[in-house]
């Protein structure tokens, strides 16, 4: 197996833009997923059963179907509902929706982990529901759910590879394209593997750093 580095140096521009597209869709998908997930979790924890039941069905549906199928529904099915999206917005929407249900489940366990008494204390002092969520529940549950959140963020990083199937020019699409152009499939795919490993590893390292930061005050939990 001979290795010719010119395969990569010749396409440095394409690879760079593919990397940026991967980063862009990933981070936008994560932000959208976190926001939607928080909304779903709050609605599930504080909503009545008319809110909770349809959400439950939605969560089950998303969790039971492959990401690729959801992506097809958004991208190819969207126009039938009057939502014609370009590949990149469709991909971000797909990633966000897919991630949101998993984020929501993580947030929900987080909400349930904060002792009831703490909320009663806040209630007695006149602190509102919303203030209570942001000031008391979210900071505390972050410590607990951070590992799960970081894991989900890396999952979404890996799912961005699937976006190549709806022709988003991200890293996988760019490198397989170079592969078919030069017939150096194994080399380009190896490069791709290493690229994703570095991305995922960086992300989880960053997560661990964050965990020690956030967890400092919780050395010993009262209760």
């Amino acid at each position: 197996m001979t290795f010719d580095p010119s395969i990569f140096t010749d396409h440095l521009g394409d690879i760079g833009s593919g990397f940026l597209v991967t980063l862009g869709t990933w981070s936008s998908g994560v932000v959208l997923g976190l926001a939607l997930g928080m909304l779903i979790a709050v609605a599930q924890v504080f909503g009545n059963r008319f809110v909770r039941a349809p959400l439950r069905v939605f969560i089950e549906l998303i969790r039971s179907t492959p990401f690729l199928v959801q992506l097809f529904l958004v991208y190819y099915g969207g126009p039938s509902f009057g939502i014609s999206l370009d590949p990149i917005p469709a991909g971000i929407l797909g990633l966000g929706v897919y991630g949101s249900v998993y984020f929501a489940e993580i947030f929900r366990t987080g909400f349930e982990s904060v002792a009831r008494g703490q909320l009663e204390a806040a209630d007695c002092l006149g602190i509102t529901r919303l203030q209570c969520i942001w000031r008391i529940q979210v900071p505390q549950m972050l410590v607990m759910i951070l590992p799960a959140l970081v894991n989900m963020v890396t999952v979404l990083c890996k799912e961005t590879a699937v976006l190549s199937i709806i022709t988003i020019p991200e890293l996988t699409m760019v490198l397989t394209g170079i592969g078919s152009e030069t017939f150096a499939f194994v080399e380009t795919l190896l490069m791709l593997c290493i690229g994703y490993l570095i991305l995922v590893e960086l992300c989880s390292r960053l997560g661990m750093l964050l965990e020690t930061r956030v967890g400092r005050f919780m050395s010993r939990q009262p209760r």
């Binding site: 890996k158 799912e159 961005t160 590879a161 699937v162 190549s164 199937i165 996988t172 397989t176 499939f185 194994v186 795919l189 190896l190 791709l192 593997c193 994703y196 490993l197 995922v200 590893e201």
Partner: peptide, 10 residues
Amino acid sequence: GIPLLVQLLF
């Protein structure tokens, strides 16, 4: 660490 899609292609 590697996306399944990339593993399958590889």
